[in-house]
């Protein structure tokens, strides 16, 4: 088919991939540091979306302008999700720091179910409408048939978040501590790094990116419910594995590849087998690169 169709699918995949990337970052950072697959991460994304909805409803009622609502609701979602991420680590993972890895994994699954059901009971099982927080930009009007304003917003936010995250990890003290902890926890502790604090910081940063993803996608598709974190979480996890879990550029690359795979497969072949194809692709990649596209192969310590 024609070039415009290709472009639309390309940007559609890019948008979808960006959302996966924002969630996948949390998975990969946590895994990089404590080798835990945090299954409750998708729920943090969902809580971010719910907070965004509640705050934006309140602010809109108070008559705030759209841009202010968007920014403030986003900030509130980030703060709230970070608090959840921090608390979750303290309650469910810290006491199990020296337990077998399987115990922590079960604890993570338990946390995921707990948060899902908590939101189900405290809020509602219904689908809730989510307002379009992103206004239609006038300057973007000529291109809106290829990429809508909310999609543009998702892309640019993701880029900004990526840049900030890179700066955080490469050039700040806490970033350096994170890298050190991920290489060798014991050694880092011996050198005077407060490992617990670093782990908490990792959870907080991961939760913040997930919350941003939650608010952006909710505003894009216009509805949320308590279960939305599950599929998004699984897909983001797949993206993280695809790119090489533990690697931050890998998570982003894996997420984009997954987004494009789904988008192009739907566009050119059929959406019936979208998921099937995405997972076949994962299997094929893992056969040839067992540690993911950018993953380092790890030497098993005896």
């Amino acid at each position: 088919m024609d070039f415009e169709y290709f472009t639309q699918l390309f940007f559609g995949g890019l948008t979808r991939g960006s959302i996966y990337a924002l969630i996948a970052l949390g998975y990969t950072m946590v895994y990089g540091i404590i080798e835990l697959i945090n299954f409750a991460h998708g729920e943090i994304y969902m809580i971010g979306a719910f907070t965004g909805l509640i705050i934006s409803t309140v602010l809109t009622m108070m008559g705030m302008p759209a841009i202010a609502v968007m920014v403030l609701a986003g900030m509130a979602a980030i703060i709230y999700s970070c608090a959840y991420g921090y608390t979750m680590e303290k309650i469910a993972y810290k006491p199990l720091r020296n337990a077998p890895r399987l115990s922590v994994l079960i604890s993570a699954i338990g946390m995921s179910l707990f948060l899902q059901n908590y939101v189900l009971l405290a809020q509602t099982s219904d689908f809730l409408p989510f307002p379009s927080l992103v206004p239609e930009f006038e300057f973007w009007e000529p291109y809106s048939h290829i990429l809508t304003s909310p999609e543009l917003m998702i892309l640019s936010t993701t880029v900004v978040v990526m840049i900030l995250l890179t700066i955080l990890i490469k050039f700040t003290k806490i970033g350096k501590a994170m890298r050190a902890t991920s290489q060798d926890k014991m050694m880092a502790a011996l050198l005077g790094i407060n490992v617990d604090q670093v782990i908490s910081a990792t959870f907080v940063v991961g939760s913040a990116t997930a919350a941003i993803g939650g608010v952006l996608i909710a505003s894009h598709i216009g509805q949320i419910n308590f279960y939305m974190g599950f599929i998004a979480g699984i897909k983001a996890f797949v993206a993280a594995v695809l790119g090489g879990i533990g690697s931050i550029p890998g998570a982003v690359l894996g997420a984009l590849v997954l987004g494009w795979t789904e988008s192009f497969f739907t566009g050119y072949i059929s959406s019936d087998y979208e998921d099937v194809f995405a997972f076949i692709f994962l299997v094929v990649i893992l056969i040839f690169r067992p540690s993911g596209i950018l993953g380092r192969s790890q030497i098993q310590k005896v």
Partner: peptide, 12 residues
């Protein structure tokens, strides 16, 4: 065509 219920978005 069929679509996957609960997918993150349906733009494709």
């Amino acid at each position: 065509e069929g679509v996957t219920p609960g997918a993150v978005d349906y733009s494709a």
